[in-house]
Amino acid sequence: MTNIAVLVKQVPDTNARIVISDDRVDLSAVKMVMSPYDEFAVETALQHREASGGEVTAITVGGASADKVLKDAKAIGVDHIVRIDCDSYLDSNSLQSMISSVISEIGAEVVYCGKAAADTGAGSTGPGIAERLGWASVSNIISATFSDIISVVAPVQGGNARISVSLPAVISCDKGNVKVRKPNVKGIMQAKKAQVDVKSASPSSSSISIISHSLPPSKPAGKTYEGGAAAAEVAQLLRDEANVI
């Protein structure tokens, strides 16, 4: 029996157009979805439960609108859903403190998360909470098998390695070869009725302030050529103009 936690985050659909107003990203018109890597984390957590028994708790941080991502996780098959109630900007330090205290509170022995959230792309949360909890961690795994020890495959310099990790541990998940399961009708019905366990939190002050959001500098228009023969000229330019060959 293993007490398993999985971290999920709501992010803009990766197809969404990002607009800026008043120096801040404006997400009011954007469809929010579970961050793609978190889907792999949920799948891996469920596979761990199937192998060892136990329960899976999905945890997110956000305002009431973030309940949707928890319901999505519930529909796929997690047992419990927890939202740490906080709607303001958090730096990595305050975010990780809040999550690690909830992990301790629920007594989880292993935490799965995505390798990075699709909005920040940072990938700091998994290793950061592992450090705070004094746990082992492996990031960017592409497969896992479960016994007393978890055996994962993760990239190392020059290839991949099979790495054994003893619990407690935090494991962040890359795409790999796992097929993520889709919710079935029963799951969706259960998710509708499921109660979100809302935990209040008081974030510590942040040592980082956002000055602005902006659109990426637009690249000066490139040169375009018609026809394959132009590849010869492009090759010359790569050497003589760009100096990259």
Binding site: R17, I18, V25, A118, A122, I208, I210, H213, P216, P217
Partner: peptide, 29 residues
């Protein structure tokens, strides 16, 4: 302490990094 990942520019001591997979940039102090 805080961590800021994927910095691509430093402007007057402030750190610039891509967010939303590079669809926007964030500047922090």
């Amino acid at each position: 302490i805080s961590v800021v990942q994927d910095v691509v520019a430093i402007e007057g001591g402030n750190l610039v990094s891509p967010i939303y997979s590079g669809k926007a940039m964030q500047t922090v102090s």
